[in-house]
Design a protein around this nucleic acid. Structure first.
Lengths: 239, 239
DNA sequence: AAGTGGTCTAGACCACAGT
DNA sequence: CTGTGGTCTAGACCACTTG
C-alpha cells in the first residue's frame, strides 16, 4: 500500500507535541495554516488531526482550534489491541514465556461455538505462562483455526504469535472483542501460575478477527489479581 | 448543530442490517451505488459506512466491498462510555441507587492531582451504592469540579448524573480514560457493599473530559468480583 | 478489464467563538 | 466581522479483487 500522505503529517505533529514544540494547553496552527505548511489540502490535514485526536494528543473544539493535550499525564495504549511483548516492552520488565502445550485438536462443542466454526475444523491449542520479574502471573490459552494457520512451531509461540501471523503469514488482524471478568482459579491456574494465596484470576476473553471479517482466534488470558491492569481510552461515539 | 447528512443514512442502513434486509455474510451495495440511492456524494456515503464499521455492523474490505457482520452474535456496548442506568437497562435487571454522601469539599492533594486542578477549586463528592436484584454490588465515588457544575441535588444523584450534565446543563462529555485493576476491599467497601467473603474489589478509575478538553470528573467505581463484567470492542488503529 | 474501496484535491457553505 | 473547525461535493487517481 502506498504511504498515506496524512501519516507523515501525523508523525511530524506527534513528534512536535511530544517534544513540547507545541505546548500542552495551547493551540495548534489552524487547519488552513497546516495545509499550507505541509503543502496539502485541508481535508488531508484534517485526517492527520483526527488521528491525533483519536489517539489522545489533541482535542478539537469547533470555532476555537485544536488544543494540545498533556501527553505525559495520559500515556495509555490507545486501545487494548497490543500483544504481550508490546505491553512488556513498555513496562520495561524482565519477561519470559513458557510454552506448556502446543497441539492440533479436533474442535469440541464449546470451542466450535466460541469460534463460530464447523465441528470438523481443527484448531491449534497453545498454552503458555508468562513470567514477569521471575513470577508466573499470566496464563494464556490460545485457540487458532488451522485452516488459516497451516503451521505453528514452539519457537513461534515462545516469541510472538502475533508477529508470526502479521509479518510471516501476512494476515491482517482487523479488530478484536474483549470481555473482562473475574473467575475462580482453576486447578490448571494453580498448577501453572504462582498464585500464592489468591483464589481468583482475572479472565480476559479475546475474540480476534481478520480483515476479511472472519473470526480466527479465541484467547483466554488468565491474570493473577494483583498484576492485572487494563487501560482503555474511549471517545463518545456519534449517532 | 445541523443534522449531519450521513446520520440518517447510517440509521437507515443500521435498521436494514438489524432487520436482516441486508444479511450477515453478504455485502452491502457499493459506495457508488449507495451514493446514488441516497442522492449524495460518495464521501458522505463513506462517512456513514465508516460509522457502521466503527460500531461493528460491517467490515470493509478493499477491492471487495462492505461485508455485513452478524449483529446478534456481537451485541456489545461499542465502548465503555455508558452510564450505570444504560447498562442496567440492557441487562433487564431490577436496580436501585443509594446516595450515601453528597457534599462540597475543598480539593485535597491527591484529588487535585487526579483532576489536574488547582488546590483552591471545590469539588462535589458523591458516594453511591448500586443494588442489582437486591444486592449492593457496586460502590461509585464521584468527584466533580464545582466550577463546571454549580448545583447538584440528591434527586439528580439518585437518577443519573450523566443525564443531568448532558441534558440539563448541556455540557458535552467528549472522552474518557478508564483504568481497571483489582484492589483489596476497603473498610468502606465492607460497610456499604454486600461483599460476602470477598476480600477484593474490581476498581475502575474513570477520567471524564468535556469537549473543551478540560477534565471535570474523576470516578472510582468499585465492583464486587463476581458481578463485574467489562466488554470492549477495539479496532486496529492506523499509523 | 471492470468494479471495489482508499485517498486526495479545490472549492463551497455552515455553525460556532472571539472581536 | 473574521477566523475557526464541521460538513458536503464532484471529480480524480490509486491499490486491490475478481472475472
Amino acid at each position: 500500500m502506498r504511504q498515506n500522505k496524512f501519516v507523515p503529517i501525523y508523525n511530524d505533529l506527534q513528534d512536535k507535541i511530544q517534544n513540547n514544540i507545541y505546548e500542552p494547553g495551547l493551540k495548534l496552527p489552524s487547519e488552513n495554516e497546516l495545509a499550507l505548511q505541509y503543502n496539502t489540502s485541508r481535508e488531508t490535514t484534517r485526517k492527520a488531526l483526527n488521528l491525533l485526536a483519536q489517539n489522545g494528543f489533541i482535542q478539537k473544539v469547533q470555532g476555537k482550534g485544536s488544543i494540545v493535550l498533556d501527553v505525559n499525564k495520559m500515556n495509555f495504549p490507545v486501545s487494548g489491541l497490543v500483544s504481550f511483548k508490546e505491553v512488556a516492552r513498555n513496562l520495561g520488565k524482565e519477561v519470559k514465556t513458557n510454552v506448556h502445550e502446543l497441539s492440533l485438536q479436533q474442535l469440541n462443542e464449546g470451542l466450535s461455538q466460541m469460534l463460530q466454526a464447523t465441528i470438523d475444523d481443527q484448531v491449534w491449542c497453545v498454552v503458555r505462562s508468562r513470567e514477569i520479574d521471575g513470577e508466573k502471573v499470566i496464563l494464556d490459552k490460545d485457540y487458532l483455526l488451522q485452516k488459516k494457520i497451516p503451521r505453528l512451531t514452539r519457537e513461534v509461540c515462545e516469541h510472538s504469535i502475533y508477529d508470526y501471523i502479521e509479518n510471516e503469514l501476512n494476515l491482517t488482524i482487523s479488530f478484536a472483542k474483549k470481555e473482562i471478568t473475574v473467575e475462580n482459579a482453576s486447578l490448571q491456574d494453580e498448577e501453572l501460575l504462582d498464585l500464592g494465596d489468591h483464589k481468583h484470576v482475572v479472565l480476559v476473553k479475546n475474540f480476534v478477527y481478520l480483515d476479511d471479517a472472519t473470526l480466527f482466534q479465541y484467547t483466554e488470558s488468565r491474570h493473577r489479581l494483583d498484576k492485572f491492569r487494563f487501560v482503555d481510552f474511549a471517545r463518545r461515539s456519534r449517532g
